[in-house]
Amino acid sequence: MISVGIVGGSGYTAGELLRLLHHHPHVVLDFVYSTTNAGLPVIKQHPDLIGESDLKFTNTIHPEIDVLFLCLGHGRSKAFLEEHEFSTTTKIIDLGNDFRLEKDQKYLHRNFVYGLPELQKKEISDAQNIANPGCFATAIQLALLPLAHTGQLTSTIHVNATTGSTGAGALPSATSHFSWRDNNFSSYKVFDHQHLVEIEQSIAKIQSNFEGPILFVPNRGNFSKGIYATIYTPYHDEENTAIDLYTKFYEDAVFTVISEAPVHLKQVLNTNKCILHIEKKRGMLIITSIIDNLIKGASGQAIHNMNLMFGFEEKTGLALKASAF
């Protein structure tokens, strides 16, 4: 059994971590850290855990835990680690963006590894610290890695992707308020979303001559969870060749699968799956990539990384099925 601590315990990603870790056979939840909720029952913020958890939020840490999940707002993980010392044997998985880029991966006495299992399974297995990928970055990279692996990303890549309201976090904002989001649709950060840099970093690692550009249009959808991404780029081989390429590339990936039929979001919600659909039209390879932004795009992927780091079977605690209705 390994002892687990969660910092930033009141948000959506922490809520999903708690839900999944409560049923992980090798985990004991040690503490859930939240300065604003210290002393309150965890179920006050996460009522879905009623009957599952009697934990209370705390504002103290136990520095000897086996693994620490950081679920803080972007840019706050570095400050937290500066203020709180953990054992050198404590493994850290950061769900924010503080350590995703190579220039940030050496920090204090720790080295972070980018935690996309389909790209760096061995490196993750050997790592002490993990930078969990972003949600959009996960969906888009999984759509592009097979092409990059074979050096076929040589032209403009177009991405149109829509995320649910939970992608904006638990704190309400003007664009996540129900009356604004419902029956509404909008784009934001067109061509300059922060996840582009980590996507380009990963692609360049396996296709050194990659120059892009990636033209990414992120959208806000009027639903709670999920990312539906459509990616297209020029492709000169046959459709079946591309499908064979993707099938072979992901043959050992336990959570990324290829669908012969067109896909829809309900197939992945509340699971750690990424489902890809491949087709060719008008000289373009069109890849549809769907994930649950809070699970495969955040907490589930973090647990997958933990499983790899501790030598557990990859699907442990993550054998989740979507609901078709």
Results as ranks from 00 to 15, higher is better:
residue 281 K to Q: 14
residue 103 K to S: 13
residue 85 E to Q: 13
residue 313 E to C: 07
residue 255 F to T: 01
residue 22 H to E: 14
residue 246 Y to A: 02
residue 120 Q to G: 08
residue 75 G to S: 08
residue 30 D to S: 15
residue 74 H to R: 13
residue 197 V to D: 12
residue 263 V to H: 08
residue 209 N to W: 03
residue 211 E to F: 07
residue 64 E to V: 03
residue 141 Q to D: 12
residue 20 L to P: 11
residue 96 G to C: 04
residue 307 N to V: 06
residue 267 Q to V: 02
residue 50 I to D: 13
residue 232 Y to V: 00
residue 118 E to A: 15
residue 83 E to C: 07
residue 308 L to S: 09
residue 268 V to K: 06
residue 309 M to A: 08
residue 284 M to R: 05
residue 94 D to N: 07
residue 107 Y to F: 15
residue 56 K to N: 14
residue 70 L to F: 02
residue 48 D to A: 15
residue 305 N to A: 13
residue 60 T to L: 08
residue 207 Q to G: 07
residue 208 S to V: 07
residue 295 I to R: 03
residue 216 F to C: 05
residue 234 P to Y: 05
residue 117 P to S: 09
residue 150 T to F: 13
residue 79 A to I: 12
residue 177 H to T: 14
residue 110 R to Y: 04
residue 239 E to Y: 04
residue 263 V to I: 15
residue 160 N to C: 10
residue 114 Y to C: 05
residue 35 T to E: 13
residue 141 Q to H: 11
residue 190 V to P: 10
residue 199 I to Q: 05
residue 135 C to V: 05
residue 89 T to Y: 06
residue 128 Q to P: 00
residue 202 S to P: 06
residue 317 G to H: 03
residue 8 G to V: 01
residue 78 K to M: 08
residue 155 S to R: 11
residue 191 F to P: 00
residue 202 S to D: 11
residue 71 C to Y: 00
residue 299 S to N: 02
residue 291 I to E: 02
residue 158 H to V: 07
residue 242 A to Q: 04
residue 112 F to D: 01
residue 160 N to Q: 13
residue 105 Q to P: 00
residue 174 A to L: 14
residue 29 L to W: 00
residue 245 L to C: 04
residue 15 G to L: 09
residue 256 T to Q: 01
residue 126 D to E: 15
residue 297 G to E: 01
residue 275 I to A: 08
residue 87 S to D: 09
residue 264 H to W: 03
residue 286 I to Q: 10
residue 71 C to N: 12
residue 68 L to T: 04
residue 283 G to S: 09
residue 134 G to E: 02
residue 58 T to Y: 04
residue 119 L to R: 05
residue 248 K to I: 07
residue 180 W to R: 12
residue 116 L to N: 05
residue 286 I to V: 14
residue 115 G to T: 02
residue 113 V to L: 08
residue 135 C to G: 11
residue 268 V to R: 01
residue 227 I to W: 04
residue 73 G to A: 13
residue 294 L to V: 06
residue 134 G to R: 05
residue 272 N to M: 07
residue 194 Q to L: 14
residue 28 V to L: 10
residue 218 P to D: 08
residue 53 S to N: 11
residue 130 I to D: 01
residue 37 N to E: 13
residue 138 T to D: 10
residue 223 F to C: 11
residue 13 T to I: 11
residue 299 S to T: 01
residue 319 A to R: 12
residue 270 N to Y: 08
residue 95 L to T: 06
residue 318 L to E: 04
residue 256 T to S: 09
residue 162 T to D: 00
residue 213 P to L: 05
residue 106 K to F: 05
residue 179 S to G: 06
residue 43 I to Q: 10
residue 228 Y to A: 10
